[in-house]
Design a protein around this nucleic acid. Sequence first.
DNA 1: GTGAAAGCGCTAACAG
DNA 2: CTGTTAGCGCTTTCAC
Lengths: 318, 318
Amino acid sequence: MTVSRVLRNRGDVSEATRAKVLEAAKTLGYVPNKIAGALASQRVNLVAVIIPSMRNMVFPEVMAGISAVLEDTELQPVVGVTDYEPEKEERVLYEMLSWRPSGVIIAGIEHTEASKAMMQASGIPVVEIMDTDGNPIDTAVGISHRRAGREMAKAILRAGYQKIGFLGTKMPLDYRARKRFEGFTEALAKGGVEVVEQEFYSGGSALAKGREMTQAILEREPELDFLYYSNDMIGAGGLLYLLEQGRDIPGDIGLAGFNGVELLQGLPRKLATMDACRAEIGKKAAEIIASRVNDPTAEFEKIIEMTPKISYGDTLRR
Amino acid sequence: MTVSRVLRNRGDVSEATRAKVLEAAKTLGYVPNKIAGALASQRVNLVAVIIPSMRNMVFPEVMAGISAVLEDTELQPVVGVTDYEPEKEERVLYEMLSWRPSGVIIAGIEHTEASKAMMQASGIPVVEIMDTDGNPIDTAVGISHRRAGREMAKAILRAGYQKIGFLGTKMPLDYRARKRFEGFTEALAKGGVEVVEQEFYSGGSALAKGREMTQAILEREPELDFLYYSNDMIGAGGLLYLLEQGRDIPGDIGLAGFNGVELLQGLPRKLATMDACRAEIGKKAAEIIASRVNDPTAEFEKIIEMTPKISYGDTLRR
DNA sequence: GTGAAAGCGCTAACAG
DNA sequence: CTGTTAGCGCTTTCAC
C-alpha cells in the first residue's frame, strides 16, 4: 500500500500522508522487512565478499577499498571468511549465494569445481581479486604474484646478492605465496643464482616467528647474504633481530618482505617490500560490480592486472 | 514439495527419491533461495555483529571468538562496520535488522536513542560487548575500562613513578579509551599524582605515530618518568623510539599500553599492557546468543564483566 | 494521489 | 512416505 511507497520514496505521495507515515514508523520503531521486499522485487542490494582471513592486514585494506566505493551506491558488502580452506569457501559461497546477492567479490583465482559451478550458474557478476595468474570465471583484478616474485629476484640480482634464503608460511593452500616463490626462484635461476636455504613457520605471532626463523636459518647457513620473506610481518621480525645482532644491513645482508604494510613506517629501518595494491584492488573490484549491476549488458575486461612497485627501503641495495 | 524436505534433511523421505533430488540439484547447480525460505519460516540463522572497525587488531580477534562458537551452531555471523560514527551505527543497525537476524552483537554500550529503540523493539537477543560501564539494553559482556585504567594507575603508583604522561587517540567518540583515561587519572589522583602532560594523534601508521608522539611529549616535558599509551601499537612505537635513544627502561622511564596484542611478542622488549579479553568476550557473546536463540525463555545475566590482567612485561617495574 | 490484487519461492500443516 | 494448500510481508501492476 501507500506505506511502502513512502518508505522507498517511490511514486507520488502527498506530503501530508507522507509525513504521517514517517511519523508513525518512527514512533513504532518500525523496520521494514527486507526479506519480503527482496522476495517480491527480486533484487538484493548485497555484494558477497569472500576472503581467507581478517587477521592478515591485507584483507581489511581490500575491504576498506570496497566499502569506500560501495558507500556511494545502493550496494552493501557482506563478508564471509574461508580460513584458506577450499571446502569452507564452498560452504560460505553456497550460503551467501542462497541470499541472492547482486554480485560476488572473491579472493583468489583457485576454487573447487563446485564453487566455480555455483558462481557460473549464479548469473551475477563475479570478480576474483588479488591474483591474475589463472583463468577467471568472469573478471579478475589483482597483481601477478609470479611476476612480483620475479621482479624482486631481479632487484636482488642487480644489487649483487648471491646467497639467498627464503622464509615463508607453511601453507600449501596459499597459492599466491607459492606463485611468488616460483617466480622468484625462476628469475634467480636465470641469473645463475639459487635459493640456498628455506625456512617455514605456522601459527603464532608473525613478528616473533620472523625473529626465530631468521635466527634458525642463519644458524644453519651463516653465509646467506639475502633473506626474502613471504610477508612483511615476519620480515619485520627478522629486521629487528638482525639489528640487535649488529649486522650491517643492507651491506652485509639484505632483506625484503611483501605487502607494503603500514606498520613498516615505524620500524627503526624501512624494510624493502613490494606493494600488493590492496586498496586499489578493492576499489576496482567494487567499481566493476557496481557498474555491471547498473548495466548488465556492459562490456568488461576479463583480467585487470595492477603493477606493484618495489620499495627499496633501507634493507636492499640499489 | 519433497525437494524442500531433502534439502533440509527434514521429515521422512525415501532414500531413492532423496538421492534423485540431490543428484538433480548438484548437476543443475541449484542453490535454494533463503529469502523465500526465511520469509516462509520466519527464521533467519544470521547474527548481526556490529563493530567500529576491522583495522584495529581488537575486532578481528573478537570476531574469531564469535565465529569459533557459531561454527558449531546453525547461526552465522554477518558483520557491519560503523567507523566509530554513531549515525553510521544507526544506519548499519537499521539495515541489518531489516533482514531480521536471530540476534545482535554490538560493540560498545553507548548508542543513539534511535539505535536503542530499534534494538529494544526488535525482540531478539542483543549483546553489547567490550564495555560494561553503563546500562545494557539486554546483556553486556566485556571489561570495565574505568577499572582497567584504575588498575594500571595503581600499578604505576606502586612502582613509584611520579611524573606521568598520557598518549592517546584524538577520538572523542572512543568512549572506552576515555573511560580508561578517567579511571586512570582518578586513581592517580588518589595517590596524589597527576598526569603532567598529554599528547594525541589521529590517522597514520600507529607505530610511526607512537614514535613521533613520544619524542614530542618528551621534548615538552623531559622529566616524565612514565608514559601510558591508549593502545599497544603506539606504545610499541614509543618503546622502539626510547630504545634507540638509549633510555633505561623501566628504570629511568616506564611504559605501558593497552590490549595485549600479539605483535608485542616480537619486540626487543615486552611492553607492559593489559589484556582486553577479546577472544573470550567474543566467545561469551556468541554463546549467549546461541543459547537464547535455542531457548528464548531462559534466564540470563545482564552484565558479565571479565577481569583483565596486567602484564608487566619489561617496561614497568614491579 | 491512493487502494486492491497477484505473486515472489519457499515452509508448515495437513491430506492422502 | 509424498502431494496439496495457504500464507510469510513485501513490490508490482492496474484500477479507481
